[in-house]
Amino acid sequence: MTPQTQITGLIGHPIAHSKSYAMHNAALQNLKIPAVYLSLPCPTPKDLQNLTSAFRTHAFVGANITTPHKKTIIPLLDQLDGTAQRIGAVNTLCSNNGILVGKNSDAEGFLNALKEDNIEYKNHPIFVIGAGGAARAITHALAPHVTSITIYNRSMARAKQLVIELREQYPECTFDTCIDPTTYCTEPDTILVQCTPLGRKGEIPPHPPLIANMTVVDLLYTQTPLLQKAQQIGAKTQDGNAMLLHQAALSFSWWFSCSPPLTIMREANNPIRSFS
């Protein structure tokens, strides 16, 4: 690094498992941009506050935000773009001469990931596990294109609050919460989207009955037990690598005002393709 090196990175906790470093640094090297993508762990809100204050320098151009700070960072920012305001969560931070702007690339990145694997989603029933920042982005991304979304979360209060917000913004879509996913009647062509950390340590989150003619998407980067279970009964599956790539590409384009080398980023990520 030199005094002219631009700084980007990943903010959250835990973040050691992330593949973002490899993707972004490979893209920066390929385009010969004098910048670096760093690990910026923030276990506590106080750590986040201190780090955000340090970002108001010309060397800092942006960062990705992940669990648990996609909502807690909002009061520390100067502006939110329209998408981040609508979703109520930030996954990308951009610095414009020290003015910190919150954006969200998760929603568009998720839809681009579905398109990459030719997963049809328009007018399909949607079941979402989770009600955090990622689930917010996914539901906002899908709501204009589908007729029904059902949300399950361990904290029903969070699920109900998300449903209230979604109903206000998308009156043409039906939103419901689910207390017990095992009692849900899975329709043909249902898309199940798993948006929680459950599965990282081998857990299987509570989920609706799986059927062959459905699609199961798990936003974790690995072949989780849920995906393996879905594959065994013949369902289509996709892990989180495609979404990771496409949301990262959007963030990169916002920071450096250029198109990122998707092929280079995909090779650096080097996922085991999990769509079937």
Rank of each mutant, 00 (worst) to 15 (best):
L100N: 06
G133D: 00
L114C: 08
Y37K: 11
T2M: 07
T263F: 13
G62M: 11
L111I: 15
A59T: 09
S259N: 10
T196I: 14
I7Q: 02
G12S: 12
I11Y: 01
V217G: 04
L244G: 06
V61E: 08
I204V: 15
A107M: 10
A242L: 05
D189V: 00
L77G: 02
Q231G: 10
I191D: 05
S274M: 13
V193H: 01
T174F: 09
A16P: 00
A107T: 08
K32Q: 13
H246C: 10
V128D: 06
L227T: 04
L192I: 15
T72R: 15
F252G: 01
T186C: 15
G133A: 05
G98Y: 00
N50E: 15
N25V: 12
P45W: 09
A26V: 14
A107I: 13
H124Q: 12
K122L: 12
I164V: 12
D176R: 12
I73M: 09
G98W: 08
P260C: 07
L227I: 06
T150Q: 14
P125R: 08
G98E: 03
I264C: 12
F110L: 01
T66D: 05
L40I: 11
F252H: 09
P188W: 01
D117S: 10
N96C: 14
Y21H: 03
Q29K: 14
K236C: 01
N97P: 07
V128A: 11
R273L: 04
S53N: 15
M265I: 05
E168N: 14
H124R: 13
L80T: 04
